[in-house]
Nucleic acid binder design. Structure first.
Lengths: 129, 129
DNA sequence: GGTACCACTTTCCTAAAGGATATCGGTATA
DNA sequence: TATACCGATATCCTTTAGGAAAGTGGTACC
């Protein structure tokens, strides 16, 4: 149950930076995957099934083709989404979450869970003044 | 077990943006809390107990006082860390994770878990060429 | 008086993220 | 021939994140 083993996280008190950095790297990796203004929205959009470029763009207000293209490429590089080109006229391109992309689900759920509690807390505070 | 209820996430296919945004907001909130180059390292550092300003700075190589100050303020505003000033000379200031800050643990663990698998996957790929 | 320490703040700068707009090559349709 | 659609690129610009370096106010020590 201990994803990060406490007895290995000694860096702050013992200055063994290498060990600490090693523990931190995977967390940063995960964060990188989800950072970027549109990535989550795109992932979410793709959880409902295959989508075409323009279709995704239409569904996410404010998303420009440049950003969509960039973010989709990053998802592709990380093998979270796949790109399928069909030789139609005009060309059809479909994007889809990979099985690997769907493994993000528990992480996103955890983010959602914590975020929701946080939001409630903030609202409760501001309600009380 | 379903933190995000699927039947409520209809925005991409039905264009009901409001509902979708509502589901997305908490996830973004959580991500905001953890984004920033130093935040995780600072949180990690504080999981080992109270720390003074300079102490944290010394423990995290490359961290400037400006950034530390900024990040600590954000942690404070979000009530993840608390600041205690002692009237000594020179003044002593201690920072500590709040109980609320410690509730981030499962989320960070999940990030660590997914990130570790991701890292292994990347290394495996590059190993096979 | 000079220096040093703490906990910052201020100023200036660079780099990266992101946005607006225009354009491209190809095909279809009027 | 003109227009529109698809799936992007390219160019330019603004905004934000982050870093380097110096300074501040207070106290203590020599």
């Amino acid at each position: 149950m201990e994803a990060i083993e406490h007895d290995k996280r000694k860096c702050p008190t013992h200055l063994s930076t290498g060990e600490c950095t090693k523990q931190l790297l995977p967390v940063k990796d995960a964060l990188d995957i989800l950072s970027g203004k549109w990535k989550l929205q795109i992932i979410l959009s793709l959880t409902f099934g295959k989508k075409r470029f323009k279709q995704i763009q239409r569904e996410i207000p404010g998303l420009t083709p440049k950003m969509l293209s960039k973010e989709l490429k990053e998802l592709e590089v990380n093998e979270l989404a796949s790109r399928h080109v069909y030789d139609t006229a005009p060309v059809t391109v479909e994007y889809e979450l990979t099985a690997y992309g769907r493994t993000l689900r528990p992480l996103i759920d955890e983010l959602h869970k914590w975020g929701s509690r946080h939001r409630k807390r903030i609202i409760a505070k501001s309600g009380r003044g």
